[in-house]
């Protein structure tokens, strides 16, 4: 799986173990239409995860900022991953207030099916 570099955003794809694909977000996601870049990348990630039976971990701890259009793209990823039965884990830094507020709110999409989990990094 290749990394994504788009403007100020970098997503590094790392296969940490034979069952987990990590996506490490760094920089800033502030494009006018981030979905145009993120959605094709996420589709590729989910295709790889399905084919190789990998869980996907999204790491946002080092991300400096994202705009609300990026939140929309992440929600679309959550929706698509659930449809394809790919497990997602979202890891964030709960000591950073904006991260805690943003990602705690996404817990609304945890539906008790074990396909979406959240982890606080600090």
């Amino acid at each position: 799986m290749e990394d994504l570099i788009a403007g100020d955003l970098k997503i590094q794809a790392i296969e940490r173990s034979p069952t987990i694909l990590e996506l490490l977000w760094t920089g800033k996601s502030n494009a006018r239409n981030p979905t145009a870049v993120l959605q094709p990348y996420f589709s590729q990630v989910l295709a790889v995860a399905m084919e190789r039976k990998l869980a996907v971990e999204l790491h946002f701890e080092k991300l400096e900022h994202f705009n609300s259009s990026t939140i929309t793209a992440i929600i679309q990823l959550i929706q698509e991953a659930r449809t394809k039965a790919v497990k997602l884990t979202i890891t964030f830094d709960h000591a950073v207030k904006w991260q805690k507020l943003s990602f705690d709110a996404l817990r609304v999409f945890s539906k008790g099916d074990g396909l979406l989990e959240f982890r606080s990094a600090s």
Binding site: N33, P34, T35, A36, N67, S68, S69, I71, T72, A73, I75, Q76, I78, Q79, E80, A105, L106, V108, F109
Partner: peptide, 19 residues
């Protein structure tokens, strides 16, 4: 607002009206 974005996630593109 998040729930609305989720419900129409398949149908729409980049704009979620979350700002």
């Amino acid at each position: 607002a998040l729930t609305l974005v989720y419900e129409r996630a398949e149908a729409q593109g980049g704009e979620g009206g979350l700002g």
